[in-house]
Measured scan of single mutants.
Amino acid sequence: MFYPNSPQTSPQLTQIPYGQQYAMMQRQIQQPYHPFATTEPQARLYPYHYQGPIQQEQGGFITQQSTAASPQYVQMRVTPVDQSIMSGYPNQTANGSSSSSFNYNIHPQQQQQQQQQQQQLRHHAMPVGSVPLQDDRYRKQLIVNYLAPDVTSTDLHELFSRFGELDGARIIYDKQTNMSKGYGFVYFCHAEDAKEAVERMSGYEFHGKWLKVGYSTNPLNIVPSNSSPYVHAGSRGAAG
């Protein structure tokens, strides 16, 4: 039997160049792979992502010199942007860049009308829970959420009447099932009393439920100042 490094198959040491006398086997001759043993700084910083320098080929596509990437890492192929796409944008300079302001050559009167329309939209648009300043009635009506099913309009009136005089209180019921929808409205005579009720009743436990109280901004629920107070009856038909 002959071994790869046996004296019968191995040459004389004098015939082997210096430095390879003890590297006779194939696994010894093959050098191990060192990912950080390279002179390129990109490979030292990113050993798993770097795959060699990027070269520009004919046709405008950018390719990489090395083989496919590892399945664990996804390499994105980048193509140059066609400058003709950006030619339609206004205020574009000769080098292809555009300024931040756009001039669509709008007539001054049209621009003024658009600004007025935007101001009107901001004036009428009102986020949930906010209180408008032009109508004091919005500051007097509250919406009470997360009410228990057994709470009546009379219970709601008695709960909030300790903060001040009320114009009314009612629970909203479903017309088909005649069941409470879980929320109601309270109408105060003074805005200061309503503000105190919002601050003190939010998070209050009532009939096993934690109440959420806020201003009601729905104009359909506003009680006119010259109208008669609501009837605080315990029956659902009268309260709904």
Rank of each mutant, 00 (worst) to 15 (best):
R236H: 01
V131C: 10
S6T: 10
H123P: 09
L156V: 13
V213A: 04
Q141E: 00
G129W: 05
G208L: 07
G60Y: 15
R236S: 04
Q30N: 13
T38D: 01
V213G: 13
G208A: 03
Y50M: 00
Q114R: 05
P71C: 08
S10A: 08
D167M: 15
P229Y: 13
P149Q: 07
N105S: 07
P4R: 09
S87E: 05
N103G: 03
Y18R: 11
V128T: 12
N95I: 06
Q109M: 14
G168P: 11
Q119F: 15
V223F: 02
S161A: 09
E165K: 07
S70N: 00
F185H: 10
V231K: 11
Q115E: 12
Q21I: 12
N91G: 05
Y46E: 07
V213P: 13
Q118M: 10
P11F: 04
A125V: 03
D167L: 08
G237W: 00
S153L: 01
Q114H: 08
R137E: 07
Q20W: 15
Y48K: 04
G184V: 10
A94M: 02
H157L: 02
H123M: 15
G129Y: 03
A233V: 10
G237Q: 01
Q110C: 00
T217I: 02
Q75H: 13
M24W: 00
Q65G: 03
Q8L: 10
P132A: 08
H207T: 04
P17Y: 13
P7H: 08
E165P: 10
F2E: 07
G19T: 12
P7W: 15
Q75I: 15
P224M: 07
R77G: 06
E196N: 13
E199P: 14
S161V: 10
I143H: 07
A68S: 03
L166N: 05
T154Q: 00
T38A: 10
A238Y: 14
I143Q: 08
L13E: 03
R77N: 15
N221D: 04
L159E: 14
F188L: 06
F2L: 07
Y50I: 03
V81Q: 14
Q21R: 02
Y48I: 09
S228M: 14
D193T: 13
A23E: 08
P7K: 11
Y230D: 10
D155T: 04
G96Q: 11
T79M: 00
G164P: 11
T67P: 05
Y73G: 10
A23P: 06
P80T: 03
G60F: 13
R44W: 15
R139Q: 10
M76Y: 01
Q83D: 03
A233L: 02
A68Q: 14
K212W: 03
R170P: 13
A239L: 10
Y22D: 03
G234P: 05
Q92G: 03
Q75L: 15
Q115D: 12
Y173W: 04
L13M: 08
H124Y: 01
Y215L: 00
N178K: 11
M76D: 05
Q55R: 12
F206N: 01
Y173I: 05
K195V: 06
N221E: 02
P41S: 09
V198W: 13
E165A: 12
A125W: 05
E40I: 05
N91P: 10
L13N: 05
Y73E: 12
G96I: 10
S70H: 03
G237V: 04
S101P: 11
A197L: 02
A43S: 05
T154S: 11
Q119G: 04
Q83Y: 14
Y183I: 15
Q72G: 10
F102G: 05
Q109K: 13
H123L: 03
A37C: 07
M201E: 08
Q56F: 02
T93M: 06
N5A: 13
P132E: 14
S84Q: 15
K181H: 03
E192F: 06
S216M: 13
Y18G: 01
A169I: 03
K140F: 01
S100A: 11
L45V: 12
N226D: 01
N5I: 13
H124G: 07
S216F: 11
I222V: 10
M126W: 03
P41I: 14
S70K: 03
T152S: 04
A197K: 00
D167N: 08
Q20S: 07
R77K: 00
S99D: 13
G182R: 13
H34I: 00
S202I: 01
E196P: 08
S99W: 08
Y22W: 14
Q12C: 09
E40M: 11
L211F: 08
I16E: 08
I171A: 01
T93P: 07
R122I: 06
E40H: 00
Q55M: 14
V198E: 09
G234Y: 01
G237A: 15
S98A: 12
S202F: 04
N218V: 09
Y138I: 03
P219V: 00
Q134C: 07
S202N: 05
S10W: 15
P7E: 15
T39C: 13
G59V: 15
A239Q: 01
E158V: 07
N178P: 03
M201C: 14
I171P: 04
R77A: 06
N178D: 14
G60N: 10
V198Y: 03
Q118F: 09
N178E: 13
Y146C: 02
D174L: 00
P127H: 02
Q58A: 13
G214N: 12
Y104M: 12
Y204G: 03
H107V: 14
Q12I: 01
G59Q: 13
N95V: 08
Q55W: 15
V74W: 09
Q26I: 06
Q30L: 05
F2Y: 13
P127Y: 01
S97L: 02
F61C: 12
P32H: 00
T39W: 00
T39V: 15
Q30C: 02
A194C: 08
K212H: 05
Y204I: 06
S101C: 14
E40A: 09
F36Y: 03
T217S: 03
G19F: 13
E205G: 07
Y146W: 00
A194F: 11
F36H: 01
T67R: 03
V78D: 13
S228P: 08
Q110W: 04
Q65F: 09
D136V: 06
Q26F: 00
Q134F: 01
P224L: 02
L147A: 14
S130M: 15
P41M: 15
R27H: 11
V78T: 01
G60K: 03
Q8V: 04
E57V: 10
Y138Q: 00
A148L: 03
G60M: 15
F163C: 04
Q31Y: 08
K212E: 09
I143A: 07
E57F: 08
I106E: 14
P47A: 11
S70G: 13
T14F: 12
Y104L: 02
S101N: 14
A169G: 01
P132G: 04
I222F: 06
A233E: 01
V74I: 12
E205I: 13
Y104D: 00
N145E: 00
P149G: 09
R139S: 11
H124Q: 02
S100M: 07
E196V: 04
P35K: 08
M24A: 14
G52Q: 08
N218H: 08
M86I: 11
T39R: 08
N103P: 04
Y183G: 10
G168C: 15
Q120E: 10
D150F: 11
Q113M: 10
L159K: 00
L159V: 04
S99T: 10
L142A: 04
H124V: 10
Y46N: 05
E158H: 15
F188H: 02
Y48S: 05
Q113G: 11
T9A: 11
T38I: 03
Y215R: 06
G208E: 08
G52D: 03
Y104K: 07
F206A: 11
S235R: 11
N145W: 12
L159P: 14
G60S: 08
M201S: 02
Y73V: 07
R77E: 01
E165C: 12
V144P: 11
G129D: 05
S6E: 07
N103E: 00
Q141G: 00
L156R: 10
Y3I: 07
